[in-house]
């Protein structure tokens, strides 16, 4: 359940993904960078689900893509089962793709409309030459479809003939085809209808038990994330601002942003909902091309004080939750630690 002893399956260390902003001149010189992911660190233990939650533009999807090297990180390291993913050449990367898979947000755009369900699910098998031979291949595809709760006859259908929930199940079956250890789920339920969301969440839950999977569950919906995750990391503007086990994060959020996020999640219970004190954040997300100095969140933080613009807060432990899981927060309210803002921005 929790991050205990032993080597973590995935370790992300100071991951950085910056996108260059090209100028308009003839030479198209780089005029600056969008700091989509700006120094993110976390670990995931084998069999664990880490929820990565944040609002649009916080860099959570970019983090997921960079872990799988579907985007090239510009700094930091990703280690999977002890191996450095960031330095891998093409061959080793291909081998790695058998152990890490991804489920995408939009089941309408993540399935090739020109391929049948069977062809989509067997693509990973083709690529890695698994279960070769017509009969073996057909049997394996049927098995995978049944595993995600679809009838094997669906293999001859095309994506446009399926509902959103069915498509997302096909996406999950494709991810499972290579028998991965880790699945990165990027907003897997955001595009689905309410009554279908629970079906997919339950499916992911069952598969984890059955196949001993490790998940990185990326979503903007804190309620869903809290439901499926053992631990939760909260991201804001390219940084992780808080990490804790799910119970502690919901009960004792320590970062002002997490508190605001929690208070904004609606509860389907009118009297409770009316009685809540809601923290309304002022303004919008600053541009990741020009983040505020010091603490990223200070421009919207209701509790901003003197050191915030000066010192870039580091994650610090503020307590331990269930099973001794450390609760870490990057906020000066819990003691001013971190790098001085000037030093932090010297490389830009």
């Amino acid at each position: 359940m929790t991050a205990g002893g032993g080597e973590p399956l995935l370790a992300v260390e100071d991951l950085q993904v910056w996108f260059p902003i090209k100028g308009n001149g003839v030479l198209r010189r780089t005029a600056g960078h969008v700091r989509a992911v700006d120094g993110v660190s976390f670990t995931i233990a084998r069999g664990e689900t880490l929820g990565l939650v944040g609002e649009s533009g916080c860099g959570k999807t970019t983090t997921g893509l960079a872990i799988l090297r579907l985007l090239e990180p510009t700094g930091g390291r990703v280690r999977f089962d002890g191996d450095d993913v960031t330095g891998m050449g093409r061959r080793r990367l291909r081998a790695l793709r058998r152990r890490m898979a991804m489920v995408f947000q939009d089941p309408y755009s993540s399935l090739d409309p020109r391929l049948s369900v069977g062809a989509i699910v067997s693509e990973p098998l083709d690529v890695h030459r698994l279960h070769t031979g017509r009969a073996a291949r057909k049997a394996r595809v049927g098995e995978l479809l049944e595993l995600v709760g679809l009838r094997p006859e669906l293999r001859d259908r095309y994506p446009h003939e399926l509902s959103g929930g069915q498509r997302q199940r096909v996406g999950v079956a494709r991810a499972l085809a290579v028998e991965p250890d880790l699945i990165v789920c990027d907003e897997p339920i955001a595009a689905l209808d309410v009554s279908i969301q629970a079906q997919v969440l339950n499916l992911l839950d069952d598969l984890q038990d059955e196949l001993d999977l490790t998940y990185l569950f990326i979503a903007h919906d804190l309620a869903a994330v809290q439901h499926v995750s053992d631990r939760i990391a909260v991201m804001y503007l390219g940084r992780v601002v808080e990490v804790a086990d799910r119970a502690r994060l919901a009960a004792e959020p320590a970062h002002p942003y997490t508190r605001a996020l929690l208070s904004a999640v609606p509860i389907p219970d009118p009297p409770r909902e009316r009685a809540r004190r809601r923290i309304i954040l002022e303004g919008d997300l600053p541009s990741p091309a020009d983040p505020p100095s010091g603490c990223n969140f200070r421009t919207r933080c209701p509790e901003v004080f003197e050191p915030c613009p000066r010192v870039d807060p580091a994650l610090q432990e503020v307590g331990r939750g269930t099973g001794g899981v450390p609760h870490e927060v990057a906020c000066h309210l819990h003691g001013v630690t971190g790098t001085p803002a000037e030093a932090g921005r010297a490389y830009s």
Binding site: S195, A198, N202, Q226, H227, A250, P268
Partner: peptide
């Protein structure tokens, strides 16, 4: 619909989903 909604602070409860499609 209400039983299928995840609620913050009620983690661990298995969601009851509505089967089938609209």
């Amino acid at each position: 619909l209400l039983a299928s909604l995840p609620v913050v602070g009620e983690a661990g409860r298995r969601l009851v989903s509505i089967t089938g499609l609209p």
